[in-house]
Amino acid sequence: MADPLLEIDSITKRFGGFLALDRVSLRIRAGERLGLIGPNGSGKTTLINCVSGALPTDAGRILFEGRDVTRLPAHRRTRLGIVRSFQIPKPFASMTVLENLGIPLEYAGLARAHGAGAMEILTMIGLDAKAHLRPSGLTQIEMRKLELARAMAARPKLLISDEAMAGLSSAEVDDILAILFRLNEQGITIIMIEHIMRAVMRFSKRVVVLDAGNRIAEGTPAEIVRNPAVEKAYLGE
Protein backbone atom coordinates (compact mmCIF):
# COMPACT_ATOMS: atom_id res chain seq x y z
CA MET A 1 0.00 0.00 0.00
CA ALA A 2 1.61 3.24 -1.12
CA ASP A 3 1.91 6.04 1.42
CA PRO A 4 -1.15 5.63 3.65
CA LEU A 5 -3.02 8.64 5.07
CA LEU A 6 -3.14 7.10 8.54
CA GLU A 7 -0.80 4.44 9.78
CA ILE A 8 -1.42 2.83 13.15
CA ASP A 9 1.68 0.91 14.07
CA SER A 10 1.09 -1.74 16.76
CA ILE A 11 -0.44 0.46 19.43
CA THR A 12 -1.15 -0.92 22.89
CA LYS A 13 -3.45 0.51 25.53
CA ARG A 14 -3.92 -0.76 29.07
CA PHE A 15 -6.41 0.33 31.72
CA GLY A 16 -4.86 -0.92 34.94
CA GLY A 17 -4.53 -4.65 34.36
CA PHE A 18 -6.99 -4.70 31.47
CA LEU A 19 -5.47 -4.88 28.01
CA ALA A 20 -7.82 -2.83 25.83
CA LEU A 21 -5.68 -2.79 22.70
CA ASP A 22 -3.00 -5.38 22.02
CA ARG A 23 -0.52 -4.22 19.37
CA VAL A 24 -3.16 -3.20 16.87
CA SER A 25 -1.93 -2.10 13.44
CA LEU A 26 -3.96 -0.53 10.68
CA ARG A 27 -3.25 1.40 7.47
CA ILE A 28 -5.75 3.60 5.75
CA ARG A 29 -5.34 5.06 2.28
CA ALA A 30 -6.52 8.53 1.35
CA GLY A 31 -10.09 8.46 0.08
CA GLU A 32 -10.91 5.11 1.63
CA ARG A 33 -14.15 4.11 3.35
CA LEU A 34 -13.25 1.82 6.23
CA GLY A 35 -15.68 0.08 8.54
CA LEU A 36 -14.51 -0.75 12.03
CA ILE A 37 -16.66 -3.33 13.79
CA GLY A 38 -16.47 -5.61 16.78
CA PRO A 39 -18.55 -6.67 19.76
CA ASN A 40 -19.03 -4.35 22.74
CA GLY A 41 -15.79 -3.91 24.67
CA SER A 42 -13.68 -5.05 21.73
CA GLY A 43 -11.62 -1.85 21.75
CA LYS A 44 -13.17 0.13 18.87
CA THR A 45 -13.83 3.23 20.93
CA THR A 46 -10.46 2.95 22.66
CA LEU A 47 -8.78 2.74 19.28
CA ILE A 48 -10.40 5.90 17.97
CA ASN A 49 -9.77 7.65 21.28
CA CYS A 50 -6.10 6.86 20.79
CA VAL A 51 -6.14 8.01 17.18
CA SER A 52 -7.99 11.25 17.94
CA GLY A 53 -5.77 11.96 20.93
CA ALA A 54 -8.34 11.69 23.72
CA LEU A 55 -6.27 8.90 25.30
CA PRO A 56 -2.50 8.49 25.40
CA THR A 57 -1.17 5.19 24.08
CA ASP A 58 1.12 2.92 26.08
CA ALA A 59 3.15 1.71 23.13
CA GLY A 60 3.24 1.98 19.36
CA ARG A 61 3.11 4.84 16.89
CA ILE A 62 0.45 6.71 14.98
CA LEU A 63 1.47 8.38 11.71
CA PHE A 64 -0.73 10.81 9.83
CA GLU A 65 0.44 11.82 6.33
CA GLY A 66 3.78 10.33 7.30
CA ARG A 67 4.06 12.53 10.38
CA ASP A 68 4.31 11.03 13.87
CA VAL A 69 1.32 12.33 15.84
CA THR A 70 1.51 9.84 18.72
CA ARG A 71 2.34 12.50 21.30
CA LEU A 72 0.29 15.37 19.91
CA PRO A 73 -2.67 16.66 21.94
CA ALA A 74 -6.10 16.12 20.44
CA HIS A 75 -6.62 19.69 19.23
CA ARG A 76 -3.37 19.59 17.24
CA ARG A 77 -4.46 16.40 15.53
CA THR A 78 -7.77 18.02 14.67
CA ARG A 79 -5.89 20.89 13.06
CA LEU A 80 -3.88 18.40 11.01
CA GLY A 81 -7.11 16.92 9.73
CA ILE A 82 -8.04 14.01 12.04
CA VAL A 83 -11.57 14.84 13.14
CA ARG A 84 -14.04 12.70 15.03
CA SER A 85 -17.70 12.86 15.85
CA PHE A 86 -19.05 11.61 19.15
CA GLN A 87 -21.30 8.64 19.71
CA ILE A 88 -23.42 10.62 22.16
CA PRO A 89 -23.69 14.06 20.55
CA LYS A 90 -21.78 16.69 22.51
CA PRO A 91 -23.03 19.99 21.13
CA PHE A 92 -22.01 23.35 22.61
CA ALA A 93 -25.29 23.90 24.40
CA SER A 94 -25.04 27.65 24.94
CA MET A 95 -24.48 28.36 21.23
CA THR A 96 -26.76 28.26 18.22
CA VAL A 97 -26.27 25.58 15.58
CA LEU A 98 -24.41 28.07 13.38
CA GLU A 99 -22.16 29.17 16.26
CA ASN A 100 -21.43 25.51 16.98
CA LEU A 101 -19.80 25.33 13.55
CA GLY A 102 -17.97 28.58 14.19
CA ILE A 103 -15.74 26.99 16.82
CA PRO A 104 -14.06 24.40 14.55
CA LEU A 105 -14.01 26.87 11.66
CA GLU A 106 -12.12 29.35 13.80
CA TYR A 107 -9.87 26.94 15.64
CA ALA A 108 -9.22 24.14 13.19
CA GLY A 109 -10.49 25.08 9.75
CA LEU A 110 -8.54 28.27 9.21
CA ALA A 111 -5.41 26.43 8.23
CA ARG A 112 -7.32 25.12 5.23
CA ALA A 113 -9.43 28.16 4.53
CA HIS A 114 -10.73 26.95 1.17
CA GLY A 115 -13.91 24.96 1.31
CA ALA A 116 -17.45 25.52 2.44
CA GLY A 117 -18.47 28.08 5.04
CA ALA A 118 -20.66 27.24 8.02
CA MET A 119 -23.94 27.97 6.24
CA GLU A 120 -22.98 25.95 3.18
CA ILE A 121 -22.13 22.97 5.35
CA LEU A 122 -25.49 23.25 7.11
CA THR A 123 -27.27 23.43 3.74
CA MET A 124 -25.44 20.36 2.47
CA ILE A 125 -26.34 18.40 5.61
CA GLY A 126 -29.89 19.72 5.69
CA LEU A 127 -29.75 21.73 8.89
CA ASP A 128 -29.86 25.21 7.35
CA ALA A 129 -33.41 25.81 8.59
CA LYS A 130 -32.23 25.26 12.16
CA ALA A 131 -29.12 27.43 11.98
CA HIS A 132 -30.27 29.86 14.65
CA LEU A 133 -31.72 27.35 17.09
CA ARG A 134 -30.00 26.12 20.23
CA PRO A 135 -29.12 22.40 20.23
CA SER A 136 -31.75 21.79 22.92
CA GLY A 137 -34.39 22.50 20.26
CA LEU A 138 -33.14 19.78 17.88
CA THR A 139 -34.48 16.28 17.35
CA GLN A 140 -32.32 13.18 17.77
CA ILE A 141 -31.41 12.95 14.07
CA GLU A 142 -30.77 16.67 13.82
CA MET A 143 -28.43 16.35 16.76
CA ARG A 144 -26.50 13.64 14.89
CA LYS A 145 -26.39 15.84 11.82
CA LEU A 146 -25.08 18.74 13.87
CA GLU A 147 -22.36 16.44 15.16
CA LEU A 148 -21.35 15.65 11.57
CA ALA A 149 -21.72 19.24 10.40
CA ARG A 150 -19.48 20.47 13.18
CA ALA A 151 -16.90 17.83 12.32
CA MET A 152 -17.09 19.00 8.71
CA ALA A 153 -16.40 22.58 9.76
CA ALA A 154 -13.04 21.40 11.08
CA ARG A 155 -12.17 20.55 7.45
CA PRO A 156 -11.22 16.94 8.06
CA LYS A 157 -8.97 14.87 5.83
CA LEU A 158 -9.92 11.87 7.93
CA LEU A 159 -13.35 11.73 9.53
CA ILE A 160 -13.97 9.21 12.26
CA SER A 161 -17.68 8.68 12.66
CA ASP A 162 -18.43 7.01 15.98
CA GLU A 163 -21.81 5.28 15.87
CA ALA A 164 -23.51 8.20 14.21
CA MET A 165 -26.58 6.08 13.49
CA ALA A 166 -27.33 4.23 16.70
CA GLY A 167 -30.98 4.50 17.64
CA LEU A 168 -32.10 6.02 14.33
CA SER A 169 -34.90 4.72 12.13
CA SER A 170 -33.93 3.01 8.90
CA ALA A 171 -34.92 6.03 6.80
CA GLU A 172 -32.76 8.22 9.04
CA VAL A 173 -29.87 5.77 8.70
CA ASP A 174 -30.12 6.11 4.91
CA ASP A 175 -30.13 9.88 5.34
CA ILE A 176 -26.87 9.85 7.34
CA LEU A 177 -25.32 7.29 4.99
CA ALA A 178 -26.05 9.52 2.02
CA ILE A 179 -24.28 12.40 3.75
CA LEU A 180 -21.24 10.24 4.51
CA PHE A 181 -21.10 9.00 0.91
CA ARG A 182 -21.18 12.60 -0.31
CA LEU A 183 -18.36 13.61 2.06
CA ASN A 184 -16.31 10.69 0.80
CA GLU A 185 -16.87 11.79 -2.80
CA GLN A 186 -15.42 15.16 -1.83
CA GLY A 187 -12.21 13.32 -0.96
CA ILE A 188 -12.60 12.85 2.78
CA THR A 189 -11.36 9.54 4.11
CA ILE A 190 -13.89 8.01 6.49
CA ILE A 191 -13.63 5.48 9.27
CA MET A 192 -17.07 4.31 10.30
CA ILE A 193 -17.64 2.65 13.63
CA GLU A 194 -21.07 1.17 13.67
CA HIS A 195 -23.20 -1.57 15.13
CA ILE A 196 -25.79 -1.41 12.38
CA MET A 197 -24.34 -4.07 10.06
CA ARG A 198 -26.52 -3.15 7.11
CA ALA A 199 -25.02 0.36 7.17
CA VAL A 200 -21.38 -0.68 7.61
CA MET A 201 -21.53 -3.34 4.94
CA ARG A 202 -23.12 -1.00 2.47
CA PHE A 203 -20.79 1.87 3.19
CA SER A 204 -17.36 0.26 3.61
CA LYS A 205 -14.94 -0.77 0.91
CA ARG A 206 -12.96 -2.59 3.57
CA VAL A 207 -13.95 -3.80 7.02
CA VAL A 208 -11.67 -4.41 10.01
CA VAL A 209 -12.91 -6.49 12.94
CA LEU A 210 -11.65 -6.03 16.48
CA ASP A 211 -12.24 -8.48 19.29
CA ALA A 212 -10.86 -8.22 22.82
CA GLY A 213 -8.26 -5.69 21.76
CA ASN A 214 -7.00 -7.70 18.79
CA ARG A 215 -7.53 -7.32 15.08
CA ILE A 216 -9.11 -10.63 14.14
CA ALA A 217 -10.17 -10.07 10.56
CA GLU A 218 -9.95 -7.74 7.61
CA GLY A 219 -11.48 -7.79 4.16
CA THR A 220 -14.25 -6.67 1.89
CA PRO A 221 -17.74 -6.72 3.40
CA ALA A 222 -18.49 -9.92 1.50
CA GLU A 223 -15.39 -11.63 2.91
CA ILE A 224 -16.15 -10.49 6.44
CA VAL A 225 -19.68 -11.85 6.33
CA ARG A 226 -18.33 -15.29 5.44
CA ASN A 227 -15.46 -15.22 7.98
CA PRO A 228 -15.96 -17.87 10.69
CA ALA A 229 -13.72 -16.02 13.22
CA VAL A 230 -15.99 -12.99 13.00
CA GLU A 231 -19.04 -15.08 13.52
CA LYS A 232 -17.46 -16.68 16.55
CA ALA A 233 -16.55 -13.29 18.04
CA TYR A 234 -20.06 -12.05 17.67
CA LEU A 235 -21.99 -15.13 18.62
CA GLY A 236 -19.59 -16.76 21.08
CA GLU A 237 -18.64 -20.42 20.98
Partner: peptide
Protein backbone atom coordinates in the same frame (compact mmCIF):
# COMPACT_ATOMS: atom_id res chain seq x y z
CA UNK B 1 -13.94 17.01 25.22
CA UNK B 2 -15.86 18.29 22.23
CA UNK B 3 -13.98 21.60 22.33
CA UNK B 4 -10.61 19.86 22.33
CA UNK B 5 -11.71 17.66 19.42
CA UNK B 6 -12.81 20.73 17.48
CA UNK B 7 -9.32 22.15 17.66
CA UNK B 8 -9.63 24.29 20.79
CA UNK B 9 -6.40 24.16 22.83
Amino acid sequence: DAAECMGVP
